[in-house]
């Protein structure tokens, strides 16, 4: 097993500072520092606050990862870092640090795509990914459906949100009904006490005319507004807002659209494996609904455990490990932080 590459991964694209270490497909360490609490009162991630926190957290997070894995930088075969997409200033801290580590330890560096890393992390838990596969990545920053032909070379975007990301919709609705930030976990919890069929919220881009142009795209902005209108009319009428029912019905609307389109993407491409990643993949209703619907069509659903679904360093290390094993050339020391990095680019060409 010593022949498998020892790869270190650094993630700073949003508000989590992550350093992960893998050997082959085995996770050795996944150290994380989060600035989420510093953003709570702003109701969303403040880029400059996130960037400051990354700079403070990087060295200690790296040390924890190395100590946990029981390795030194000298032992590492390659260093991978999220090059994009993400918050430009936040990405730059991780990329600069990764270059410092690579330069000082004289190791190859791979600038990798954050979304492809969300897919790759599943192999740490469930082994090699059958290809082609469909990946659905849903978080506060992204909502995408991807066709994964070859994780190290090509990922084809099928669709994405045309307005808010799924996680963003959770945050905004949570704020609307007074549940705080981040919205995902608290709505998931609150929804358990509610009736998901009690309010018929709209399903964006599912009408036949929308499907023609946006079969695999998402829209959550209209849903968010519909929830706001519904809550406001109750308040104006002087009636109490049934927070649990609103949470459950909103969550159902999101999960219904996500899973319906993901299964449709699998069937349209003759694919029998669906991988779900990103913070929203931790949503309990999404997992259940995806399993239920996939089972009807003989599709296997793979969802990494919640700690691997949210942003972390392990996912970057996992993708780096794939790239090293596939013999992909490393990036160069002038690799950029690319806030709008395209999915057609799994790693920055050397």
């Amino acid at each position: 097993m010593r022949d498998e590459p020892l790869v270190l991964g650094i993630e700073t694209s949003c508000d989590e500072t992550g350093v992960g270490i893998v050997r082959g497909h085995t996770l050795l360490a996944d150290a994380l520092a989060s600035s989420v609490e510093q953003h709570a009162r702003f109701g969303g991630v403040v880029p400059e606050v996130a960037s400051r926190a990354h700079l403070e957290a990087l060295v200690p997070t790296m040390q924890r990862a190395l100590d946990t894995a029981g390795v030194t930088l000298a032992d590492v075969d390659a260093i991978a870092v999220t090059s994009g997409p993400g918050l430009a200033g936040a990405l730059l801290v991780g990329v600069a640090a990764a270059k410092g580590y690579a330069l000082a330890a004289e190791k190859p560096i791979y600038g990798v795509n954050h979304l492809a890393a969300h897919v790759a992390v599943d192999t740490l838990e469930h082994g090699p990914l059958p290809e082609p596969a469909i990946a659905m990545l849903v978080s506060g920053g992204h909502s995408s459906l991807l066709l994964v032909d070859d994780l190290t070379a090509g990922v084809t975007p099928l669709g994405a949100t045309i307005d808010d990301a799924a996680g963003e919709a959770f945050d905004k609705v949570a704020r609307l009904i007074g549940l705080g930030f981040p919205g995902g976990p608290v709505i998931d919890r609150t929804a358990r006490e509610g009736d998901r069929a009690s309010i018929a919220f709209p399903r964006g881009l599912t009408a036949p005319k929308d499907l023609a142009a946006h079969r695999f795209d998402f829209s959550f902005s209209g849903l968010k507004t519909a929830v706001a209108r519904w809550v406001e009319s109750r308040e104006r009428a002087g009636e109490p807002v049934p927070v649990a029912d609103v949470s459950a019905s909103f969550q159902e609307a999101v999960c219904d659209v996500l899973t319906a389109k993901a299964i449709d993407a699998c069937r349209a491409n003759g694919v029998r494996t669906l991988v779900i990643g990103g913070g929203v993949a931790a949503n309990s209703r999404l997992r259940v609904l995806a399993e239920e619907r996939a089972a009807k069509h003989g599709i296997a659903v793979r969802v990494p455990r919640p700690a691997l679904c949210t942003d972390n360093g392990a996912m970057v290390a996992a993708l780096g490990s794939h790239l090293v094993a596939a013999g992909v050339a490393p990036s160069r020391l002038d690799l950029p932080a690319d806030s709008s990095m395209s999915l057609t680019e799994v790693s920055v060409a050397g």
């Binding site: 060295v59 790296m62 930088l73 600069a96 640090a97 990764a98 270059k99 410092g100 580590y101 330069l103």
Partner: peptide, 9 residues
């Protein structure tokens, strides 16, 4: 970030 990471490495 570069200085800190190089120092650590």
């Amino acid at each position: 970030a570069t200085a800190a990471s190089m120092g650590q490495a």
